[in-house]
Amino acid sequence: MSHPSPPPALTPQFCFSTVALRDFLRISRGAIDDSITQNLNALITPASAGFDPSSTSIRTPRPPNLRRISQSSCHTFKNQVLFPSWQVRSDVLNYCASVATSPDPDDPESVLRQVENERDRERLVDERLDPYSARFFPREARTEKLAAIIRQERGVENIIRARSWGLVTERCGEDWRDWEEALNEWRKKRER
């Protein structure tokens, strides 16, 4: 069974290094969610029913509940692997979102942005002579860039979790909850 990725050391430098942030998310997702089918298949004991040699002579669709995973194995996988992995990624994204919304006194480009904004205010635009002279692309603060990346990664995270949860509920049995409800319930149990 896979193990959740260990949480990284959360610092503003980690968040502003978008390569490190995205690498952590990619590795964590790859270990658990991208290989969810293999993780779930590992929970099945293949020899429990014995091997039938005639089963390889004809291709037949498998019965719907033949490959169900035991409830105890599913429960263990969800509580010890899947939800902790999701929680670590949520913690990282929440921390980096708080960094993105905080003031950034160490921004190396803040002086350059101020100079560009001052120049933009002084600029005279004659669109008859140059129709493109009115365009000006101000530099984004690194907190704004980070906020955009966090929004994008949260969207990716929602898609990945919905896909993974769909496979888990299909293989483990019917579960009426969506992934958000199940994760919130797990969080509540963990806090007790």
Score class of each variant (00 low, 15 high):
Ser2Asn: 09
Ser2Val: 09
His3Trp: 03
Pro4Lys: 05
Ser5Val: 01
Ser5Gln: 09
Pro6Cys: 00
Pro6Ala: 09
Pro7Ala: 15
Ala9Thr: 15
Thr11Cys: 07
Gln13Pro: 00
Gln13Glu: 15
Phe14Gly: 03
Val19Ile: 14
Leu21Ile: 04
Leu21Asp: 03
Ile27Gly: 01
Arg29His: 04
Gly30Thr: 10
Ile32Thr: 14
Ile32Asp: 10
Asp33Cys: 02
Asp33Gln: 12
Asp34Phe: 10
Ser35Thr: 15
Ile36Lys: 03
Thr37Ser: 11
Asn39Tyr: 01
Leu40Ile: 08
Ile44Pro: 00
Ile44Val: 14
Thr45Arg: 08
Ala49Leu: 14
Pro53Leu: 12
Pro53Phe: 12
Ser54Trp: 02
Ser55Thr: 13
Thr56Asn: 06
Thr56Val: 15
Ile58Thr: 14
Arg59Tyr: 14
Arg59Pro: 01
Pro61Ala: 13
Pro63Val: 08
Pro64Ala: 14
Pro64Cys: 03
Asn65Ser: 12
Leu66Pro: 00
Leu66Gly: 01
Gln71Glu: 10
Gln71Val: 08
Gln71Trp: 02
Ser72Ala: 13
Ser73Lys: 10
His75Ser: 13
Phe77Asn: 03
Lys78Gly: 00
Leu82Arg: 04
Pro84Ala: 07
Gln87Gly: 02
Ser90Tyr: 02
Val92Cys: 02
Tyr95Asp: 03
Ala100Asn: 02
Thr101Met: 06
Ser102Arg: 08
Ser102Thr: 09
Asp104Arg: 06
Pro105Lys: 04
Asp107Gly: 07
Asp107Glu: 08
Ser110Trp: 00
Val111Phe: 10
Val111Ile: 14
Glu116Cys: 02
Glu116Asn: 08
Asn117Phe: 01
Asp120Tyr: 03
Arg121Phe: 00
Arg123Glu: 06
Arg123Trp: 04
Val125Lys: 05
Asp130Tyr: 11
Tyr132Ile: 02
Ala134Thr: 09
Phe137Gln: 11
Arg139His: 12
Arg142Val: 03
Thr143Met: 04
Val156Ser: 02
Val156Pro: 00
Ile159Phe: 05
Ile160Ala: 08
Ala162His: 04
Arg163Cys: 00
Ser164Gly: 14
Leu167Pro: 00
Thr169Pro: 04
Cys172His: 07
Cys172Ser: 11
Gly173Thr: 12
Glu174Met: 05
Trp176Pro: 00
Arg177Met: 11
Arg177Thr: 10
Arg177Lys: 12
Leu183Met: 08
Leu183Glu: 08
Asn184Lys: 15
Asn184Tyr: 01
Glu185Gln: 11
Trp186Met: 04
Lys189Leu: 12
Arg190Leu: 13
Arg190Ala: 13
Arg190Asp: 05
Arg192Met: 10
